[in-house]
Design a protein around this nucleic acid. Sequence first.
DNA 1: TTTGAAATGGGCAAATTTGCCTATATTTTT
DNA 2: AAAAATATAGGCAAATTTGCCCATTTCAAA
Lengths: 67, 67
Amino acid sequence: MGLRLKNLRKQKAVSQEQLANLCDFEISQISRIERGIINTSISSIFTIAEKLEISPKELFDFEEIQE
Amino acid sequence: MGLRLKNLRKQKAVSQEQLANLCDFEISQISRIERGIINTSISSIFTIAEKLEISPKELFDFEEIQE
DNA sequence: TTTGAAATGGGCAAATTTGCCTATATTTTT
DNA sequence: AAAAATATAGGCAAATTTGCCCATTTCAAA
């Protein structure tokens, strides 16, 4: 999931800091989510998806195997 | 999300208790998730989706408006 | 290589979730 | 209506996440 987010974020050319500001999260939080350090909540995912202007579903669009 | 889960679970004719056992969660936890009392984690969602034999994406397949 | 931006890492308190348990309410079946 | 099954509710401690710091590392551009 984290990897998926990282890829989508980069596709949108948004930095972790920018995304953090948009979501009103901490940068470290975005970093933790992308690296899979934490198991973030659904609402965080929804916020991120919204601010990244993607569908939440897209964040789960990856093969089970990875990460 | 909770509503979506509840619907999918019922479609599969699985009770909260059965789902809880499958996932190795507490029944009350399933109940809380379905009612939106808590903001559960992604990994919980993945576990539930797996045990319910659905794609995680399906759980997010609903209109923004509802619930 | 140096500079600046972007990302990672860690510590700590506050907030939230989770498990465990028991009780009550609601729904379904007989 | 009564009984049985399902779902909701709440309390409490343990576990996890989150925000708020600041320091360090990695990466990209000059």
